[in-house]
Amino acid sequence: MLWVLLVGTVTLASPLILAAMGGYVSERGGIVNIALEGKMLAACAATSLVGFATGSVLWSLAAGIASATALAWSHWLLTQKFRVDAVVSGMALNALAFGATNFFDKRFTDPTHIGEMPRLPLGAYQALAFALPLLLAYGVRRTRAGVRLMASGSDPDKARQMGVEPVAVRFWAQTVTGLLCGLAGAMIVTNAGRFVDNMTAGRGFIALAALILGGWRPVQVGLACLFFGFAEALQLVLQGTDLMGAKIPSEAWSSLPYLATIVALAGFAGKSRAPAGLGKV
């Protein structure tokens, strides 16, 4: 059972880490991103549909990443060029992704078709997910791109004074966010075998919560994702088991990460570690 728990945690945490790292890059660059959910969902659908249609792993993964990136670019365009509030934009893109995935799935999936979606091994995603926080923690310090990303999200005006163009930096940041959310979605659908309506089931928001809980620091965010993944796995394992004679509904276990997030936010006390320039142009 312990083994099952471990494997479950790793598998369930991986897409959360991928998405949360996507959120990390976006928010470190200064753009609030509540559309991680939509991007993941779009990637789920695109990966599945193109996978079944072409039978090619490469094309299916490319489609997943492209769909998420298209949404990420829309977010950049709306918030940076049209100056739409990032929360409103994120909301709209989530709705759009939810509707479009349903639309394409219903329109193009042949329910009688029985076959296998071509997939990468889950281990590939897992390896990437677990390496990514370390890579990012290293990368934001040791690369020009990383330093400029942090600068853009910290104070865009001062960054501009130093010759950095935050809006351009953020375009590349959003591209990375799209890429990572695309991978997260591809992994979810790889794990499930095929697309199901709303299959991300709020994981994008959990990833966002992990981002905040981890204080916008990659390794800590990764650990927060592991915690959420563990809670989800625990719920699957403990479903219907007794605890000291009393039957604990599985939902109590499921609520755990949510409640933990609320308690953590309540304990933060004012000073948050959020990028100071979050939302500023």
Partner: peptide, 22 residues
């Protein structure tokens, strides 16, 4: 598919946000 209504919803929000929620 009923998803179309959500597509319309999302697009409506985008259009209105560009007009209003700058």
């Amino acid at each position: 598919p009923k998803g179309l209504s959500y597509v319309i919803l999302g697009l409506l929000i985008v259009v209105f946000a560009v007009v209003r929620y700058r």
